Computed example of a mutant assay.
Amino acid sequence: MTQPIKWLQDEIAERMLQKLDIVKLDVRDILLIPDFPGNHHASLAKRFPRARIHSVIEDGSSRFQLWISKTAVNWRSLFSGGAVGSLSHLRDNNKFSISDHSVDLIFSNLLLQDLVDPKLFLRECWRVLREGGLVVFSYLGPDTGKELRALSSSSLQLKNLISPWDMHDLGDALVVERFADPVMDMEYLTLDYQKSELLLSDIEALGLANVNHHLDVEIDDLPHKLTLEIVYGHAWAIGKHLAKSHDSVAFIDVNQIGRKTRTDSH
């Protein structure tokens, strides 16, 4: 995402937080992926006032603005700043810059569609979540920007989403990566435009097209609306002492098996 689309990130973050209303979770550490200077910090601080926020920062975001956004709503951030990483590091290495079993909640807003392999992302979420932790996410589904597919403008180089996974694909991947009780749902948002320039700005910010600004865009060919398919999901990290299953058989670490002794009386 880029600066012109921050309003969408804030809107979807608020909807994600509303979906958390029914979830009971003791949170000490939160990992935001991506983190950006938005209104979501105030909502998270209100929901989890004692939590420390760790950030994977969106490329191009100001770390100073991010720090101001956090500390304005949560004074604990002044004294207990969390770990910080970047999306570019995540994309290059498929790793978070954070230790194993270190967070209780991962909050990922509109990211998965930009990753080459979301399964690697889920694997990292499993690694860093504590036992009983929760991953919550949203991303753009494959019907996003469907109005653009009929365009033939030479000024627009249309692009497919890097990972056009529907909610069933992601739900299956969660199960494969050992997450428990995955819940998936989706909704369509329709954006209406009075100015084609705003549409061009949004589709470029969403990664749906590259705009050749040296050519005049055929304005008459552009739609006046844009459909966004928003997919939501969450799942729990439960039973982390179990090794990865193979052929539907789970293998238990021998160190996790307790031994009960019996003293015979005579």
Rank of each mutant, 00 (worst) to 15 (best):
Arg63Trp: 00
Gly141Asp: 01
Ala180Lys: 09
Glu124Asp: 11
Ser88His: 09
Asp185Ile: 01
Leu158Gly: 06
Trp165Arg: 03
Leu134Arg: 11
Asp21Ala: 13
Ile98Pro: 00
Tyr193Glu: 02
Leu112Asn: 03
Leu25Lys: 08
Val183Asp: 08
Thr190Val: 07
Ile162Glu: 10
Ala42Lys: 12
Leu25Ile: 09
Arg15Leu: 13
Asp166Lys: 01
Gly85Val: 00
Asp216Asn: 06
Val103Ser: 02
Arg123Ser: 13
Ser102Gln: 10
Ala250Thr: 08
Lys195Val: 05
Glu14Trp: 10
Lys46Arg: 15
Ile203Trp: 09
Leu215Met: 14
Leu129Ala: 03
Leu87Gly: 06
Ala237His: 07
Ser196Ile: 01
Leu110Tyr: 00
Lys46Asn: 12
His246Trp: 13
Gly81Ser: 15
Leu198Met: 13
Ala237Asn: 11
Ser97Glu: 12
His234Glu: 09
Asn94Thr: 08
Thr71Leu: 06
Asp114Pro: 00
Leu32Gln: 06
Leu87Tyr: 08
His168Met: 05
Asp26Lys: 15
Lys159Met: 14
Ile12Gly: 01
Asp221Ala: 15
Leu170Glu: 03
Leu161Ile: 05
Ser102Lys: 06
Ser80Gln: 13
His213Leu: 04
Phe64Arg: 12
Leu215Ile: 02
Leu215Phe: 06
Lys95Val: 07
Leu8Gln: 06
Ile57Trp: 09
His214Gln: 14
Leu161Val: 01
Thr261Tyr: 15
Leu25Val: 08
Arg91Lys: 10
Arg262Pro: 03
Gln113Arg: 04
Leu90Asn: 02
Leu156Glu: 07
Asp59Glu: 15
Leu112Glu: 09
Gly141His: 01
His89Phe: 12
Val136Gln: 02
His214Asp: 13
Pro118Trp: 06
Arg52Asp: 13
Asp169Asn: 15
